[in-house]
Design a protein around this nucleic acid. Structure first.
Length: 338
RNA sequence: CCGCCCUUAGCUCAGACUGGUAGAGCAGUCGACUGUAGAUCGACUUGUCCCCCGUUCAAAUCGGGGAGGGCGGACCA
């Protein structure tokens, strides 16, 4: 059965590890890790970008959960991957990687408990290169291209684009990772790792996938930093209020598809679920007496139910969301400014 | 190495044959309506027409050269 260790939030280790995860591969493997988390290592790889946005923060929240559960945590600053994805010169990428590391610390990752590793410190080693070639022998072009989440549809793949996911798979072995963490968009990479690493004589890794936040203004697809509106560490309170207010927010958890049949989510609820409630014991929605006065929620489900029933108006939910996002970001924002 | 196609608004593209310094859809911005957003109306904004040279009173448009991208062929010792 599950371990009896109880964490501050009253969850056992397995529940803490898997909370808010979209998927875990496999549950059995994670249950086994939950037995002895203090000797396990988890990692997320990030392509360096100048500003930490709410999507990065979502996986960072999971790293914080894992640290609390007892895991060691590695953050890969994937400078070589960024280079392969045509994000600039090594020098430029190194600069943004440094900034990103600072932003992660400002956001709340414990500097002492987190190993920040630059990909270039080991990905050029002969042993790594030879394993990479072995991986290339094992993998079809088609498979590698499908695993490359970053490649935009319609764009023609470069050789670097198909090498990219193979290196992601190999990183899991070279960073001595037990649990590979990423957004659900990284699923194909992790499945490729599970299938191909054993061919090289390595263990098949366990993976955990977080949900991907929907686009803030449409509720469709995923929120992107390159296009559309995203929330970042560098937003002011006014920015947050403005962005949240313009968000798509029908009074339901399951919005209807749009006229073209595209699925839609409620991004305001998603942010409450994945960012606010994991970090706050209680959420107070301030509301003018005219509309019934303040509301208090101890968990996400209660808030979502009220939005669904009409008890909580989306406009009030939004102003509360902007307020709590500001509380989450403010300490880091100050630290970055100083 | 050879051949064909493409390059015009943030995006997808029309306009080119029949030269007169540019258009549509989507996106975006702003209003109206909703106590949010969306939807729906209404209005508005946007351009080195890939670059250079030439012809012309006048070139996105015609001619020449170049660059970038895509596809195919050939070579297969």
């Amino acid at each position: 059965m599950k371990p009896s260790l109880v964490h501050p939030l009253g969850m056992d280790t397995y529940d803490l590890i898997t909370r808010n995860a979209a998927e875990v591969v496999t549950e059995d493997e994670v249950e086994e890790m939950a037995e002895s988390p203090e000797v396990k290592r988890a990692y997320v790889g990030y392509e360096p970008s100048g500003v930490l946005h709410i999507g990065h923060m979502l996986t960072a929240n999971k790293l914080i959960d894992l640290q609390e559960a007892g895991f060691d945590v590695t953050v890969l600053l994937a400078d070589v991957h960024a280079y392969l994805n045509d994000k600039g010169t090594f020098e430029e990428i190194r600069d943004t990687a440094e900034r990103m590391q600072q932003q992660f610390i400002a956001y709340g990752l414990d500097e002492d408990k987190t190993d920040f590793v630059y990909g270039s410190t080991y990905q050029m080693d002969e042993e790594y290169e030879l394993d990479l070639h072995a991986m290339q022998v094992e993998t079809t072009l088609n498979r590698a291209q499908r695993a490359m989440a970053e490649i935009q549809s319609g764009e023609t793949a470069k050789v670097s684009h198909v090498v990219y996911p193979l290196m992601q798979a190999l990183d899991i072995e070279y960073l001595d990772v037990d649990l590979a963490v990423g957004g659900i968009d990284q699923r194909k990479v992790h499945m490729l790792a599970r299938e191909n690493l054993p061919e090289l004589g390595y263990d098949s890794p366990t993976s955990l996938h977080t949900p991907i936040l929907a686009d803030l203004t449409t509720g469709e697809g995923k929120m992107s930093s390159s296009e559309g509106v995203t929330i970042s560490m560098e937003d002011s309170a006014d920015d947050l209020a403005e962005k949240v207010n313009s968000a798509y927010c029908p009074p339901t958890r399951d919005p209807e598809p749009d006229d073209d049949g595209n699925e839609r989510e409620n991004p305001v609820l998603q942010i409450f679920e994945y960012h606010v409630f994991p970090r706050f014991e209680e959420v107070v929605v301030e509301r003018p007496d005219q509309y019934g006065g303040n509301l208090e929620y101890g968990d996400y489900a209660a808030l979502a139910d009220d939005l669904e029933s009409g008890e909580l108006h989306p406009a009030d939910a939004k102003s509360a969301l902007a307020d709590y996002l500001d509380r989450l970001i403010e300490p880091g924002r100050k630290q970055l400014q100083s």
